[in-house]
Design a protein around this nucleic acid. Structure first.
Length: 477
DNA sequence: CCGCACTGTCTATCGAGTGT
DNA sequence: ACACTCGATAGACAGTGCGG
């Protein structure tokens, strides 16, 4: 017996599918925090009073006969040739069934069309006439007040969206176009499961977007690649083609092999000149934009699907911790904040009273992280808007010299995470000796404490973050 | 899952020039 | 007058890689 998610796994990678069925999976903390039951809220949104609720292992007959007495069904189960589907909402009309999927995000994208098409295929095989498909998703524009307004929290959409948020293809038409016969897929799945673990095959999807959790296990030889290896070339999916051409080392690359990417250029130059590349002119220009005294700022936050407090939007975050290092007159001062629950206002107050009035404030990946957090807080708390925006304006992204190929060290091995950069530039600040070695581990700990409403031990992670930034800078300068 | 930046690629559009 | 090409330009979009 398979579920739609098995099809998804198998399509993604037969080996992934095999492992999911044969090996015990380690549970991973979800990125998105969801305390509510999505299906219950969506039911409120659709204003359904009378309906039947499907349960596990419902047969087709049970589901179908339920529709004889009910217009609406929730979590309706169907099954065809061993493939089970669960339809979140289903409405019987004179023209056929209208089905609704829920989506825990603000922009359902056409990329997921396979999933919807596979669901539809099962219904079609059972001769159920589906006349429309809609998706219930979170409303990006909704701002919570004291109470949650469910009707405004969701949007029921007939369209997918572009990444910019504009409506694109009509869901039903697009899904209808993508329906494929799954019989063959199902028998291949059966065959795969009864056989040995499939060989690892490298595809872009193995590392695209989120690296597959099995990646290191599938391609162990890549773990041992030295810094010069072509496998560290960034912004390309042609690595294996290059290897096939006999190019396995970065210093073998010529202009014809690369796309003209600045980081690629920096990688090659570093490879040719003994391990390091510095674009002195560009770096000088960047440094010119900096204003002493220097401060270093780092936030931690948690991402909520459904806004838990006033002023928050769906998929917005709650900053709960900051660490601030101020560097002047050869001295380093440290301040930090850590709160639970809705600690935003305390967070802001502490930040505003501790941050220096002048000078550049660094953060790693600031434009995509700390700066956004400050602007969000400014919107949520108009009293502090001006002060917060002025801090945001002083933020400089410490990652820029790396992202733009101004500096490259072969030991980066193609990655510019703060962790990697630190390991290379300031090895004595490595994270190995810490209990928390990863931002998401910090969030996990915080969530546990937040749910108990108990204080958490402040850890030293942020201190090291900032130290590392300081060292990075002194090194770069 | 979200957002952002950067980059390259693709597409639409415009004006100039050309051929019919 | 019309259709076409060409190159330049601008905007949309996808791909990649950060942060949590």
């Amino acid at each position: 017996m398979y579920h739609i998610s098995d099809i998804k796994k198998y399509r993604f990678c037969p080996r992934f599918f095999w492992k999911a069925n044969h090996q015990k999976q380690t549970s991973r903390m979800p990125y998105i925090r969801l305390e509510e039951k999505l299906i219950e809220l969506a039911k409120e949104k659709l204003e359904i009073d009378s309906f039947f609720m499907g349960v596990r292992n419902d047969s087709n007959d049970i589901s179908l006969s339920a529709f004889e007495k009910n217009e609406w069904g929730c979590n309706v189960r169907f099954e065809y040739h061993g493939l089970r589907v669960k339809i979140p909402f289903m409405q019987k009309t004179d023209e056929g069934y209208r089905i609704f999927f829920t989506y825990l995000g603000v922009l359902p994208k056409g990329d997921d069309v396979r999933f919807y098409a596979d669901n539809l295929w099962v219904l079609q095989q059972l001769d159920l006439h589906v006349m429309d498909i809609q998706i219930i998703h979170l409303n990006a524009g909704y701002i919570r007040e004291e109470e949650l307004d469910v009707s405004d929290l969701f949007v029921v959409s007939e369209h997918f969206y572009t990444p910019k948020g504009n409506p694109s293809k009509r869901i039903f038409d697009y899904v209808l176009h993508h329906v494929q016969d799954l019989s063959k897929v199902l028998s291949s799945m059966e065959e795969t499961l009864s056989g040995p673990m499939p060989e690892a095959v490298k595809l872009p999807r193995c590392y695209r977007r989120n690296k597959c959790p099995h990646y290191d296990e599938c391609f162990p030889h890549e773990q041992t690649h030295d810094a010069m290896s072509i496998y560290h070339l960034v912004n390309t999916n042609q690595k294996d083609e290059l290897v096939a051409k006999g190019i396995t080392r970065l210093d073998q690359l010529t202009g014809e092999d690369i796309t003209g990417d600045r980081v690629q250029y920096a990688q090659i130059m570093a490879a040719r000149s003994g391990g390091e590349f510095v674009d002195r002119l560009a770096l000088k220009n960047w440094i010119k934009s900096l204003q002493p005294p220097f401060s270093f700022l780092d936030f931690e936050w948690d991402l909520y699907a459904i806004p838990p407090y006033h002023g928050l939007k769906p998929m917005e975050v709650l900053p709960f911790q900051f660490s601030l290092h101020m560097y002047h007159d050869q001295q380093v001062e440290h301040e930090q904040f850590l709160g639970v629950g809705d600690c935003r206002e305390d967070f802001i107050k502490k930040l505003l009273t501790t941050i220096p009035e002048e000078g550049t404030i660094f953060a790693y990946n600031a434009d995509g992280a700390e700066k956004l957090r400050l602007l969000e807080l400014a919107r949520q708390f108009p009293t502090y808007e001006e002060a917060l925006i002025s801090i945001a304006d002083r933020l400089i992204d410490l990652a820029i010299p790396f992202f733009l190929g101004l500096y490259y060290n072969l030991e980066f091995k193609g990655a510019f995470t703060l962790k990697r950069v630190t390991e290379v530039i300031a090895p004595d600040l490595a994270y190995d000796d810490l209990n928390i070695q990863h931002g998401l581990q910090a969030v996990e700990q915080w969530r546990a404490a937040d749910r108990l409403d108990a204080p958490m031990d402040p850890d030293v992670k942020d201190q090291l973050y900032a130290y590392c930034m300081r060292d990075t800078l002194s090194m770069v300068s």
